[in-house]
Design a protein around this nucleic acid. Structure first.
Length: 176
DNA sequence: TGCATGGCGCCGG
DNA sequence: ACCGGCGCCATGC
């Protein structure tokens, strides 16, 4: 049986909702996002896909502290692992390639697609990032347009700006 | 099945 | 530098 836990907490970028799974001592992140509706939708999706799953309300001190530290600029590496319960093979490959982008760096959607092995699928790569279930953990904010513009971030481009600024990534000079 | 829809890229005016 | 237009590809209905 699949046991999952959920909660939310306040952060400098607004309320963050999360779902996690206990693995020994270290939590794995199934969902992390700032959009309540996306959170609710994700839960519905899980219920359909995993009818045997149990979802409890439970806080993870570790998750909240690590994310808060990252958002405060104290620790570059959030040090939490994602656990993908949804997503196509394509999407997972895009997400996994995105994880490899180091703190403080940025690449274009096109470069990301190439890295993931889909040379011409840069547009689809953007769509896959829009479906990223774990913001910050899969650092989709480090993927920007080839032109140097920052591109989209769900509904909240402000958050992408905040994160790029936090990591000291300048908008018009992307770092390879 | 086909077709529209995207967090994009490139080129020409 | 700034558009518009067209091309690109995985998904969803």
């Amino acid at each position: 049986m699949l046991e999952l836990f959920k909660d939310d907490f306040h952060s400098v970028i607004g309320t963050l909702y999360y779902i996690w799974k206990a693995l020994n001592n270290c939590p794995e992140i199934v969902f992390l996002g700032n959009d309540r509706k996306a959170f609710d939708r994700y839960i519905e999706k899980l219920k359909i896909k995993f009818s045997d799953a149990e979802l409890y309300n439970r806080k993870s001190e570790e998750v909240e502290i690590k994310i808060s530290n990252y958002l405060a600029g104290r620790t570059p590496d959030i040090d939490l692992k994602p656990y993908f319960l949804t997503g196509s093979d394509f999407e997972k490959k895009i997400w996994l390639s995105t994880i490899k982008i180091p703190y403080g760096a940025a690449i274009s959607y096109k470069e990301l697609a190439q890295k993931a092995g889909f040379t011409r699928a840069w547009r689809a790569a953007g769509t896959a990032l829009n479906h990223n279930p774990v913001m910050l953990i899969v650092p989709c904010h480090r993927v920007i347009k080839s032109s140097g513009e920052i591109g989209f971030f769900g509904r909240d481009t402000k958050i992408k700006e905040f994160l790029l600024n936090l990591e000291n990534i300048s908008k018009n000079k992307k770092i390879k």
